[in-house]
Design a protein around this nucleic acid. Structure first.
Lengths: 271, 271
DNA sequence: GTTCCGCATGAATCGATAG
DNA sequence: ACTATCGATTCATGCGGAA
Protein backbone atom coordinates (compact mmCIF):
# COMPACT_ATOMS: atom_id res chain seq x y z
CA UNK A 1 0.00 0.00 0.00
CA UNK A 2 1.31 3.42 -0.94
CA UNK A 3 1.07 6.50 1.23
CA UNK A 4 -0.02 9.87 -0.11
CA UNK A 5 -1.65 8.08 -2.99
CA UNK A 6 -5.11 7.90 -4.44
CA UNK A 7 -6.31 4.48 -5.50
CA UNK A 8 -8.77 4.05 -8.32
CA UNK A 9 -11.30 1.34 -7.63
CA UNK A 10 -14.15 0.11 -5.47
CA UNK A 11 -13.10 0.53 -1.85
CA UNK A 12 -14.73 -2.80 -0.95
CA UNK A 13 -12.04 -4.45 -3.10
CA UNK A 14 -9.13 -2.08 -2.65
CA UNK A 15 -9.31 -2.11 1.13
CA UNK A 16 -8.73 -5.85 1.21
CA UNK A 17 -5.13 -5.31 0.15
CA UNK A 18 -4.41 -2.84 2.93
CA UNK A 19 -2.63 -3.90 6.12
CA UNK A 20 -4.59 -4.27 9.33
CA UNK A 21 -4.30 -1.99 12.39
CA UNK A 22 -2.77 0.76 10.29
CA UNK A 23 -4.80 3.99 10.04
CA UNK A 24 -5.18 6.52 12.82
CA UNK A 25 -8.35 7.88 11.26
CA UNK A 26 -10.84 6.90 8.61
CA UNK A 27 -12.96 9.85 7.61
CA UNK A 28 -15.41 9.86 4.78
CA UNK A 29 -18.56 11.23 3.29
CA UNK A 30 -19.92 8.22 1.40
CA UNK A 31 -22.55 8.58 -1.29
CA UNK A 32 -25.79 9.24 0.51
CA UNK A 33 -28.70 6.94 -0.19
CA UNK A 34 -30.79 7.89 -3.21
CA UNK A 35 -28.41 10.71 -4.06
CA UNK A 36 -25.90 11.24 -6.84
CA UNK A 37 -25.99 7.64 -7.98
CA UNK A 38 -25.64 6.29 -4.45
CA UNK A 39 -27.21 3.02 -3.33
CA UNK A 40 -30.94 2.87 -2.73
CA UNK A 41 -32.11 3.22 0.84
CA UNK A 42 -33.29 -0.36 1.16
CA UNK A 43 -29.93 -1.79 0.09
CA UNK A 44 -27.71 0.77 1.78
CA UNK A 45 -26.84 -1.17 4.91
CA UNK A 46 -26.05 -4.36 3.03
CA UNK A 47 -23.92 -2.38 0.63
CA UNK A 48 -21.97 -0.71 3.41
CA UNK A 49 -21.48 -3.80 5.58
CA UNK A 50 -18.42 -5.34 3.88
CA UNK A 51 -16.79 -1.92 3.63
CA UNK A 52 -17.31 -1.31 7.33
CA UNK A 53 -15.76 -4.71 8.02
CA UNK A 54 -12.60 -3.76 6.15
CA UNK A 55 -12.48 -0.33 7.78
CA UNK A 56 -12.60 -2.00 11.16
CA UNK A 57 -9.72 -4.24 10.16
CA UNK A 58 -7.42 -1.53 8.81
CA UNK A 59 -8.08 1.00 11.60
CA UNK A 60 -5.70 1.16 14.52
CA UNK A 61 -7.14 -0.02 17.85
CA UNK A 62 -6.89 3.54 19.19
CA UNK A 63 -8.13 5.09 15.97
CA UNK A 64 -11.38 6.76 14.99
CA UNK A 65 -13.87 6.45 12.16
CA UNK A 66 -15.79 9.59 11.26
CA UNK A 67 -18.80 9.14 9.01
CA UNK A 68 -20.54 12.14 7.51
CA UNK A 69 -24.05 11.25 6.45
CA UNK A 70 -27.61 12.54 6.45
CA UNK A 71 -31.07 11.08 6.26
CA UNK A 72 -32.90 11.64 3.02
CA UNK A 73 -36.62 12.16 2.55
CA UNK A 74 -38.62 9.28 1.09
CA UNK A 75 -42.35 9.67 0.55
CA UNK A 76 -42.55 12.70 2.79
CA UNK A 77 -40.67 11.07 5.68
CA UNK A 78 -37.11 11.08 6.85
CA UNK A 79 -35.78 7.63 6.09
CA UNK A 80 -34.25 5.59 8.90
CA UNK A 81 -31.40 4.04 6.95
CA UNK A 82 -28.85 5.95 9.02
CA UNK A 83 -30.31 4.45 12.19
CA UNK A 84 -30.07 1.03 10.60
CA UNK A 85 -26.51 1.75 9.55
CA UNK A 86 -25.52 2.71 13.09
CA UNK A 87 -27.18 -0.46 14.35
CA UNK A 88 -25.24 -2.56 11.85
CA UNK A 89 -21.94 -0.93 12.78
CA UNK A 90 -22.56 -1.43 16.49
CA UNK A 91 -23.37 -5.07 15.83
CA UNK A 92 -19.99 -5.34 14.14
CA UNK A 93 -18.18 -4.09 17.23
CA UNK A 94 -17.94 -0.39 16.51
CA UNK A 95 -18.71 1.93 19.40
CA UNK A 96 -21.00 4.82 18.48
CA UNK A 97 -19.15 7.30 20.65
CA UNK A 98 -20.70 10.54 19.54
CA UNK A 99 -22.77 12.29 16.98
CA UNK A 100 -21.44 15.69 15.97
CA UNK A 101 -23.83 18.15 14.42
CA UNK A 102 -22.52 20.05 11.43
CA UNK A 103 -24.57 23.21 11.19
CA UNK A 104 -24.55 24.26 7.54
CA UNK A 105 -25.17 27.94 7.65
CA UNK A 106 -25.23 28.24 3.89
CA UNK A 107 -27.67 25.47 3.16
CA UNK A 108 -29.16 25.12 -0.27
CA UNK A 109 -32.12 27.37 -0.97
CA UNK A 110 -35.53 25.83 -1.51
CA UNK A 111 -39.05 25.60 -0.21
CA UNK A 112 -41.34 22.65 0.46
CA UNK A 113 -44.84 22.52 1.87
CA UNK A 114 -44.00 20.14 4.71
CA UNK A 115 -40.48 21.06 5.80
CA UNK A 116 -37.88 23.79 5.81
CA UNK A 117 -34.44 23.84 4.32
CA UNK A 118 -32.12 21.23 5.74
CA UNK A 119 -29.28 23.00 7.51
CA UNK A 120 -27.49 20.26 9.41
CA UNK A 121 -25.77 16.97 8.84
CA UNK A 122 -24.29 14.45 11.21
CA UNK A 123 -20.72 13.37 11.66
CA UNK A 124 -20.84 10.11 13.52
CA UNK A 125 -17.80 9.20 15.54
CA UNK A 126 -17.08 5.49 15.86
CA UNK A 127 -14.20 3.78 17.60
CA UNK A 128 -13.02 0.25 18.24
CA UNK A 129 -12.41 0.80 21.93
CA UNK A 130 -13.50 3.02 24.79
CA UNK A 131 -10.08 4.56 24.90
CA UNK A 132 -8.77 6.17 21.77
CA UNK A 133 -6.62 9.06 20.64
CA UNK A 134 -8.23 12.47 21.04
CA UNK A 135 -6.18 15.66 21.03
CA UNK A 136 -8.73 18.09 22.36
CA UNK A 137 -6.31 20.96 22.78
CA UNK A 138 -5.74 21.03 19.04
CA UNK A 139 -9.24 22.28 18.32
CA UNK A 140 -9.60 24.90 21.03
CA UNK A 141 -11.43 28.00 19.87
CA UNK A 142 -10.99 31.62 20.97
CA UNK A 143 -12.97 32.45 24.07
CA UNK A 144 -16.07 34.58 23.55
CA UNK A 145 -16.24 38.31 24.11
CA UNK A 146 -18.20 37.82 27.29
CA UNK A 147 -15.01 36.75 29.01
CA UNK A 148 -13.13 39.98 28.51
CA UNK A 149 -14.83 41.78 31.36
CA UNK A 150 -14.69 38.72 33.50
CA UNK A 151 -11.07 38.09 32.75
CA UNK A 152 -10.25 41.64 33.74
CA UNK A 153 -11.89 41.15 37.06
CA UNK A 154 -10.29 37.81 37.71
CA UNK A 155 -6.81 39.03 37.08
CA UNK A 156 -7.50 41.85 39.52
CA UNK A 157 -8.62 39.37 42.14
CA UNK A 158 -5.59 37.31 41.46
CA UNK A 159 -3.35 40.29 42.02
CA UNK A 160 -5.07 41.15 45.26
CA UNK A 161 -4.71 37.68 46.56
CA UNK A 162 -1.04 37.24 45.89
CA UNK A 163 0.70 40.24 44.34
CA UNK A 164 4.20 38.85 44.63
CA UNK A 165 3.54 35.93 42.34
CA UNK A 166 2.34 38.09 39.49
CA UNK A 167 5.73 39.69 39.18
CA UNK A 168 7.52 36.38 39.26
CA UNK A 169 5.76 35.34 36.10
CA UNK A 170 5.36 31.72 37.07
CA UNK A 171 2.46 31.77 39.49
CA UNK A 172 0.04 28.90 39.11
CA UNK A 173 -2.97 31.20 39.05
CA UNK A 174 -1.52 33.36 36.35
CA UNK A 175 -0.76 30.50 34.07
CA UNK A 176 -4.32 29.25 34.48
CA UNK A 177 -5.76 32.53 33.31
CA UNK A 178 -3.40 32.77 30.39
CA UNK A 179 -4.86 29.51 29.14
CA UNK A 180 -8.31 31.05 29.15
CA UNK A 181 -7.76 32.72 25.78
CA UNK A 182 -9.22 29.59 24.27
CA UNK A 183 -11.92 27.14 25.26
CA UNK A 184 -13.04 23.74 24.08
CA UNK A 185 -15.68 23.63 21.37
CA UNK A 186 -18.99 21.81 21.64
CA UNK A 187 -20.28 18.97 19.49
CA UNK A 188 -21.99 21.46 17.18
CA UNK A 189 -19.66 22.48 14.38
CA UNK A 190 -20.06 25.62 12.37
CA UNK A 191 -17.36 27.18 10.33
CA UNK A 192 -17.48 30.52 12.10
CA UNK A 193 -16.16 29.22 15.39
CA UNK A 194 -14.19 26.19 14.39
CA UNK A 195 -11.99 27.73 11.78
CA UNK A 196 -10.74 31.02 10.47
CA UNK A 197 -10.71 29.75 6.93
CA UNK A 198 -13.00 31.54 4.52
CA UNK A 199 -13.46 28.43 2.43
CA UNK A 200 -16.96 27.14 3.06
CA UNK A 201 -18.91 26.65 -0.11
CA UNK A 202 -18.45 23.01 -1.00
CA UNK A 203 -20.46 19.95 -0.08
CA UNK A 204 -17.63 18.66 2.11
CA UNK A 205 -15.79 21.81 3.11
CA UNK A 206 -12.09 21.63 3.82
CA UNK A 207 -12.39 22.82 7.39
CA UNK A 208 -14.59 19.88 8.36
CA UNK A 209 -12.12 17.02 7.74
CA UNK A 210 -9.35 19.29 8.98
CA UNK A 211 -11.13 19.72 12.29
CA UNK A 212 -11.52 15.99 12.81
CA UNK A 213 -7.96 15.32 11.66
CA UNK A 214 -6.56 17.76 14.19
CA UNK A 215 -8.81 16.25 16.85
CA UNK A 216 -8.07 12.57 16.24
CA UNK A 217 -4.60 12.44 14.70
CA UNK A 218 -1.17 13.99 15.03
CA UNK A 219 1.46 14.91 12.48
CA UNK A 220 2.79 11.90 10.63
CA UNK A 221 -0.28 9.76 11.23
CA UNK A 222 -1.97 8.08 8.31
CA UNK A 223 -5.53 8.91 7.33
CA UNK A 224 -7.89 7.03 5.05
CA UNK A 225 -10.82 8.23 3.01
CA UNK A 226 -12.44 5.32 1.16
CA UNK A 227 -14.82 7.62 -0.75
CA UNK A 228 -12.43 10.40 -1.59
CA UNK A 229 -14.52 12.15 -4.22
CA UNK A 230 -12.71 15.22 -5.47
CA UNK A 231 -10.05 14.83 -2.81
CA UNK A 232 -10.95 17.24 -0.02
CA UNK A 233 -9.78 14.86 2.70
CA UNK A 234 -6.47 14.35 0.97
CA UNK A 235 -5.89 18.07 0.66
CA UNK A 236 -6.77 18.52 4.31
CA UNK A 237 -4.38 15.76 5.37
CA UNK A 238 -1.58 17.19 3.27
CA UNK A 239 -2.12 20.67 4.75
CA UNK A 240 -1.85 19.19 8.22
CA UNK A 241 1.25 17.10 7.48
CA UNK A 242 -0.58 13.82 7.82
CA UNK A 243 -0.13 10.97 5.37
CA UNK A 244 -3.22 10.10 3.40
CA UNK A 245 -4.59 7.20 1.43
CA UNK A 246 -7.63 7.81 -0.72
CA UNK A 247 -9.87 5.49 -2.71
CA UNK A 248 -12.26 6.64 -5.38
CA UNK A 249 -14.23 4.57 -7.86
CA UNK A 250 -14.90 7.36 -10.36
CA UNK A 251 -11.91 7.82 -12.67
CA UNK A 252 -12.77 11.45 -13.35
CA UNK A 253 -12.79 12.20 -9.63
CA UNK A 254 -9.50 10.39 -9.17
CA UNK A 255 -7.87 12.64 -11.71
CA UNK A 256 -9.41 15.76 -10.24
CA UNK A 257 -8.18 14.76 -6.80
CA UNK A 258 -4.67 13.93 -8.00
CA UNK A 259 -4.55 17.27 -9.75
CA UNK A 260 -5.64 19.08 -6.60
CA UNK A 261 -2.98 17.33 -4.56
CA UNK A 262 -0.29 18.19 -7.08
CA UNK A 263 -1.32 21.83 -7.29
CA UNK A 264 -2.09 22.40 -3.67
CA UNK A 265 0.05 25.06 -2.07
CA UNK A 266 -1.21 25.42 1.44
CA UNK A 267 -4.91 26.03 1.02
CA UNK A 268 -5.11 26.84 -2.63
CA UNK A 269 -7.75 25.12 -4.72
CA UNK A 270 -9.48 23.66 -1.73
CA UNK A 271 -13.20 23.27 -1.43
CA UNK B 1 -62.15 17.04 29.13
CA UNK B 2 -61.54 20.63 30.15
CA UNK B 3 -59.68 23.17 28.06
CA UNK B 4 -57.02 25.46 29.53
CA UNK B 5 -56.62 23.02 32.36
CA UNK B 6 -53.76 21.04 33.84
CA UNK B 7 -54.54 17.47 34.80
CA UNK B 8 -52.70 15.77 37.62
CA UNK B 9 -51.89 12.16 36.87
CA UNK B 10 -50.06 9.66 34.69
CA UNK B 11 -50.69 10.66 31.08
CA UNK B 12 -51.00 6.99 30.09
CA UNK B 13 -54.19 6.92 32.18
CA UNK B 14 -55.44 10.47 31.79
CA UNK B 15 -55.23 10.43 28.00
CA UNK B 16 -57.68 7.52 27.81
CA UNK B 17 -60.50 9.82 28.87
CA UNK B 18 -59.78 12.37 26.15
CA UNK B 19 -61.80 12.46 22.91
CA UNK B 20 -60.25 11.21 19.71
CA UNK B 21 -59.25 13.37 16.73
CA UNK B 22 -59.18 16.47 18.90
CA UNK B 23 -55.79 18.19 19.25
CA UNK B 24 -54.08 20.23 16.55
CA UNK B 25 -50.70 19.69 18.18
CA UNK B 26 -49.14 17.49 20.82
CA UNK B 27 -45.82 18.90 21.91
CA UNK B 28 -43.80 17.55 24.78
CA UNK B 29 -40.44 17.04 26.32
CA UNK B 30 -40.82 13.74 28.14
CA UNK B 31 -38.39 12.64 30.81
CA UNK B 32 -35.25 11.52 29.01
CA UNK B 33 -33.95 8.03 29.64
CA UNK B 34 -31.69 7.76 32.70
CA UNK B 35 -32.34 11.41 33.57
CA UNK B 36 -34.36 13.16 36.27
CA UNK B 37 -35.86 9.91 37.46
CA UNK B 38 -36.95 9.03 33.94
CA UNK B 39 -37.24 5.43 32.72
CA UNK B 40 -34.09 3.42 32.10
CA UNK B 41 -32.89 3.15 28.53
CA UNK B 42 -33.78 -0.51 28.15
CA UNK B 43 -37.39 0.02 29.24
CA UNK B 44 -37.95 3.36 27.58
CA UNK B 45 -39.67 2.21 24.39
CA UNK B 46 -42.04 -0.14 26.18
CA UNK B 47 -42.88 2.62 28.62
CA UNK B 48 -43.65 5.10 25.86
CA UNK B 49 -45.62 2.77 23.61
CA UNK B 50 -49.06 2.99 25.26
CA UNK B 51 -48.69 6.77 25.59
CA UNK B 52 -47.87 7.09 21.91
CA UNK B 53 -50.93 5.00 21.12
CA UNK B 54 -53.18 7.42 22.99
CA UNK B 55 -51.48 10.44 21.46
CA UNK B 56 -52.18 9.03 18.03
CA UNK B 57 -55.83 8.58 18.93
CA UNK B 58 -56.41 12.06 20.35
CA UNK B 59 -54.50 13.95 17.64
CA UNK B 60 -56.39 15.40 14.71
CA UNK B 61 -55.70 13.74 11.36
CA UNK B 62 -54.05 16.93 10.12
CA UNK B 63 -52.24 17.54 13.40
CA UNK B 64 -48.60 17.24 14.45
CA UNK B 65 -46.70 15.64 17.29
CA UNK B 66 -43.44 17.29 18.31
CA UNK B 67 -41.15 15.28 20.55
CA UNK B 68 -38.11 16.88 22.17
CA UNK B 69 -35.58 14.28 23.23
CA UNK B 70 -31.87 13.53 23.32
CA UNK B 71 -29.65 10.50 23.46
CA UNK B 72 -27.69 9.94 26.63
CA UNK B 73 -24.29 8.36 27.05
CA UNK B 74 -24.09 4.82 28.42
CA UNK B 75 -20.70 3.24 28.93
CA UNK B 76 -18.94 5.75 26.73
CA UNK B 77 -21.39 5.39 23.83
CA UNK B 78 -24.42 7.31 22.71
CA UNK B 79 -27.37 5.06 23.40
CA UNK B 80 -29.75 4.20 20.56
CA UNK B 81 -33.02 4.32 22.50
CA UNK B 82 -34.18 7.32 20.48
CA UNK B 83 -33.68 5.35 17.27
CA UNK B 84 -35.68 2.52 18.76
CA UNK B 85 -38.36 4.96 19.83
CA UNK B 86 -38.67 6.37 16.33
CA UNK B 87 -38.88 2.85 14.98
CA UNK B 88 -41.66 2.01 17.41
CA UNK B 89 -43.61 5.13 16.52
CA UNK B 90 -43.29 4.44 12.80
CA UNK B 91 -44.51 0.91 13.37
CA UNK B 92 -47.57 2.41 15.03
CA UNK B 93 -48.40 4.47 11.96
CA UNK B 94 -46.70 7.76 12.77
CA UNK B 95 -44.80 9.41 9.95
CA UNK B 96 -41.35 10.68 10.96
CA UNK B 97 -41.59 13.82 8.89
CA UNK B 98 -38.60 15.75 10.10
CA UNK B 99 -35.96 16.08 12.72
CA UNK B 100 -35.33 19.63 13.85
CA UNK B 101 -32.05 20.45 15.50
CA UNK B 102 -32.20 22.68 18.55
CA UNK B 103 -28.82 24.30 18.96
CA UNK B 104 -28.45 25.00 22.68
CA UNK B 105 -26.19 27.93 23.23
CA UNK B 106 -26.05 27.39 26.97
CA UNK B 107 -25.06 23.78 27.07
CA UNK B 108 -23.90 22.18 30.26
CA UNK B 109 -20.24 22.77 31.04
CA UNK B 110 -17.85 19.94 31.47
CA UNK B 111 -14.83 18.22 30.05
CA UNK B 112 -14.34 14.59 29.28
CA UNK B 113 -11.57 12.61 27.66
CA UNK B 114 -13.72 11.24 24.84
CA UNK B 115 -16.25 13.93 23.94
CA UNK B 116 -17.07 17.60 24.07
CA UNK B 117 -20.00 19.40 25.60
CA UNK B 118 -23.36 18.44 24.17
CA UNK B 119 -24.91 21.49 22.54
CA UNK B 120 -27.84 20.18 20.54
CA UNK B 121 -31.07 18.29 21.03
CA UNK B 122 -33.63 17.00 18.57
CA UNK B 123 -37.24 17.94 18.07
CA UNK B 124 -38.82 15.14 16.08
CA UNK B 125 -41.85 16.01 14.02
CA UNK B 126 -44.39 13.22 13.59
CA UNK B 127 -47.71 13.31 11.78
CA UNK B 128 -50.53 10.90 11.04
CA UNK B 129 -50.70 11.76 7.35
CA UNK B 130 -48.58 13.13 4.56
CA UNK B 131 -50.71 16.25 4.47
CA UNK B 132 -50.98 18.25 7.65
CA UNK B 133 -51.36 21.83 8.83
CA UNK B 134 -48.18 23.90 8.56
CA UNK B 135 -48.26 27.68 8.61
CA UNK B 136 -44.76 28.45 7.41
CA UNK B 137 -45.32 32.18 7.06
CA UNK B 138 -45.90 32.44 10.80
CA UNK B 139 -42.30 31.68 11.61
CA UNK B 140 -40.55 33.81 9.02
CA UNK B 141 -37.53 35.50 10.47
CA UNK B 142 -35.98 38.86 9.64
CA UNK B 143 -33.33 38.56 7.03
CA UNK B 144 -29.88 38.73 8.55
CA UNK B 145 -27.01 40.88 7.40
CA UNK B 146 -25.18 37.76 6.40
CA UNK B 147 -27.87 36.89 3.91
CA UNK B 148 -27.89 40.31 2.29
CA UNK B 149 -24.45 39.75 0.94
CA UNK B 150 -25.30 36.20 0.05
CA UNK B 151 -28.38 37.24 -1.90
CA UNK B 152 -26.13 39.01 -4.31
CA UNK B 153 -24.53 35.72 -5.21
CA UNK B 154 -27.76 33.79 -5.81
CA UNK B 155 -28.01 32.50 -9.32
CA UNK B 156 -30.74 33.62 -11.68
CA UNK B 157 -32.45 30.25 -11.43
CA UNK B 158 -32.54 30.49 -7.65
CA UNK B 159 -34.25 33.83 -7.87
CA UNK B 160 -36.74 32.60 -10.45
CA UNK B 161 -37.73 29.73 -8.25
CA UNK B 162 -39.12 32.14 -5.65
CA UNK B 163 -42.77 31.19 -5.23
CA UNK B 164 -43.94 34.72 -4.29
CA UNK B 165 -47.23 33.40 -3.01
CA UNK B 166 -46.93 35.28 0.25
CA UNK B 167 -49.47 37.91 1.19
CA UNK B 168 -52.28 36.83 -1.06
CA UNK B 169 -55.19 39.17 -0.44
CA UNK B 170 -52.83 42.06 0.05
CA UNK B 171 -51.30 44.14 -2.64
CA UNK B 172 -48.33 42.95 -4.53
CA UNK B 173 -46.22 45.60 -2.85
CA UNK B 174 -46.85 44.04 0.53
CA UNK B 175 -45.89 40.63 -0.69
CA UNK B 176 -42.70 41.97 -2.19
CA UNK B 177 -41.86 43.78 1.00
CA UNK B 178 -42.42 40.63 3.05
CA UNK B 179 -40.36 38.57 0.68
CA UNK B 180 -37.50 40.96 0.83
CA UNK B 181 -37.23 41.49 4.58
CA UNK B 182 -38.09 38.10 5.99
CA UNK B 183 -37.05 34.63 5.09
CA UNK B 184 -38.08 31.12 6.02
CA UNK B 185 -36.02 29.54 8.77
CA UNK B 186 -34.14 26.28 8.41
CA UNK B 187 -34.56 23.11 10.45
CA UNK B 188 -31.85 24.30 12.85
CA UNK B 189 -33.35 26.30 15.69
CA UNK B 190 -31.39 28.70 17.77
CA UNK B 191 -32.92 31.44 19.80
CA UNK B 192 -30.99 34.22 18.15
CA UNK B 193 -32.67 33.91 14.77
CA UNK B 194 -36.02 32.39 15.56
CA UNK B 195 -37.21 34.65 18.30
CA UNK B 196 -36.69 37.98 19.95
CA UNK B 197 -37.61 36.71 23.38
CA UNK B 198 -34.91 37.04 25.98
CA UNK B 199 -36.30 34.31 28.15
CA UNK B 200 -34.32 31.22 27.36
CA UNK B 201 -32.46 29.98 30.35
CA UNK B 202 -34.61 27.00 31.20
CA UNK B 203 -34.38 23.40 30.13
CA UNK B 204 -37.36 23.80 27.81
CA UNK B 205 -37.27 27.47 26.90
CA UNK B 206 -40.50 29.29 26.12
CA UNK B 207 -39.54 30.24 22.58
CA UNK B 208 -39.17 26.61 21.54
CA UNK B 209 -42.80 25.44 22.03
CA UNK B 210 -43.94 28.87 20.84
CA UNK B 211 -42.14 28.39 17.57
CA UNK B 212 -43.75 25.00 16.90
CA UNK B 213 -47.15 26.27 18.00
CA UNK B 214 -47.02 29.13 15.52
CA UNK B 215 -45.83 26.73 12.85
CA UNK B 216 -48.38 23.96 13.33
CA UNK B 217 -51.46 25.63 14.85
CA UNK B 218 -53.58 28.74 14.52
CA UNK B 219 -55.39 30.84 17.08
CA UNK B 220 -58.14 28.93 18.85
CA UNK B 221 -56.62 25.51 18.19
CA UNK B 222 -56.12 23.14 21.09
CA UNK B 223 -52.67 21.97 22.11
CA UNK B 224 -51.67 19.06 24.34
CA UNK B 225 -48.58 18.53 26.46
CA UNK B 226 -48.73 15.14 28.22
CA UNK B 227 -45.53 15.85 30.20
CA UNK B 228 -46.17 19.43 31.11
CA UNK B 229 -43.52 19.80 33.79
CA UNK B 230 -43.51 23.32 35.13
CA UNK B 231 -45.93 24.44 32.45
CA UNK B 232 -43.86 26.10 29.77
CA UNK B 233 -46.02 24.73 26.94
CA UNK B 234 -49.18 25.98 28.64
CA UNK B 235 -47.72 29.46 29.07
CA UNK B 236 -46.68 29.46 25.43
CA UNK B 237 -50.13 28.37 24.26
CA UNK B 238 -51.82 31.01 26.39
CA UNK B 239 -49.52 33.72 25.02
CA UNK B 240 -50.44 32.69 21.51
CA UNK B 241 -54.20 32.50 22.16
CA UNK B 242 -54.35 28.74 21.72
CA UNK B 243 -56.25 26.48 24.08
CA UNK B 244 -54.10 24.07 26.04
CA UNK B 245 -54.48 20.84 27.95
CA UNK B 246 -51.60 19.75 30.14
CA UNK B 247 -50.92 16.55 32.05
CA UNK B 248 -48.33 16.23 34.77
CA UNK B 249 -47.75 13.38 37.20
CA UNK B 250 -45.78 15.36 39.78
CA UNK B 251 -48.15 17.25 42.09
CA UNK B 252 -45.52 19.88 42.87
CA UNK B 253 -45.05 20.59 39.17
CA UNK B 254 -48.82 20.77 38.66
CA UNK B 255 -49.09 23.49 41.25
CA UNK B 256 -46.13 25.39 39.87
CA UNK B 257 -47.64 25.25 36.40
CA UNK B 258 -51.09 26.34 37.55
CA UNK B 259 -49.50 29.23 39.40
CA UNK B 260 -47.56 30.27 36.31
CA UNK B 261 -50.70 30.21 34.21
CA UNK B 262 -52.60 32.32 36.73
CA UNK B 263 -49.82 34.85 37.08
CA UNK B 264 -48.78 35.00 33.49
CA UNK B 265 -49.13 38.43 31.97
CA UNK B 266 -47.62 38.08 28.56
CA UNK B 267 -44.25 36.57 29.21
CA UNK B 268 -43.78 37.05 32.91
CA UNK B 269 -42.52 34.18 34.98
CA UNK B 270 -41.66 32.00 32.04
CA UNK B 271 -38.76 29.64 32.05
C1' DG C 1 -31.42 55.72 32.07
C1' DT C 2 -27.47 53.24 30.70
C1' DT C 3 -23.57 50.34 31.27
C1' DC C 4 -20.96 47.35 33.88
C1' DC C 5 -19.97 43.63 36.89
C1' DG C 6 -20.68 39.52 40.01
C1' DC C 7 -23.05 35.45 40.49
C1' DA C 8 -25.90 31.43 40.01
C1' DT C 9 -26.82 27.59 37.33
C1' DG C 10 -28.05 24.35 33.61
C1' DA C 11 -31.91 17.07 30.51
C1' DA C 12 -23.76 16.15 31.58
C1' DT C 13 -20.20 12.67 31.93
C1' DC C 14 -16.15 10.20 33.53
C1' DG C 15 -13.45 7.67 36.64
C1' DA C 16 -12.73 6.26 41.18
C1' DT C 17 -14.50 4.37 45.23
C1' DA C 18 -17.67 1.78 47.91
C1' DG C 19 -21.09 -1.94 48.67
C1' DA D 1 -18.68 -8.50 37.60
C1' DC D 2 -22.23 -5.30 38.57
C1' DT D 3 -24.67 -1.19 40.43
C1' DA D 4 -24.70 3.12 43.28
C1' DT D 5 -22.76 7.29 44.73
C1' DC D 6 -19.52 11.20 44.59
C1' DG D 7 -16.06 14.63 43.21
C1' DA D 8 -14.10 17.12 39.43
C1' DT D 9 -14.51 19.22 35.31
C1' DT D 10 -16.44 23.67 32.77
C1' DC D 11 -18.84 28.02 30.01
C1' DA D 12 -22.76 31.01 28.09
C1' DT D 13 -26.31 33.41 29.67
C1' DG D 14 -29.87 36.23 32.36
C1' DC D 15 -30.59 38.60 36.33
C1' DG D 16 -30.00 41.90 39.92
C1' DG D 17 -27.50 45.38 41.99
C1' DA D 18 -24.05 49.00 41.59
C1' DA D 19 -21.58 52.76 39.37
Amino acid sequence: MRHNYIYHGDCADVLKKFPEDHFALAITSPPYANKRGGPKVNTYVDWFQPIAKELYRVLRDDGSFVLNIKECVVKGERHTYVHDLIGMLRGMGWLWVEEYCWHKRNSFPGKWPNRFRDAFERCHHFTKNKHFCMYQDEVRVPIGDWSKSRLKHLSATDRQRDPSKVGSGFGKNVSNWVDRDTVFPTNVLHMATECGNKQHSSAFPLWLPEWFMRLFTKEGDTILDPFLGSGTSAVAAKCLKRKFVGIEVNKQHVETARERIRNDKGRKGAG
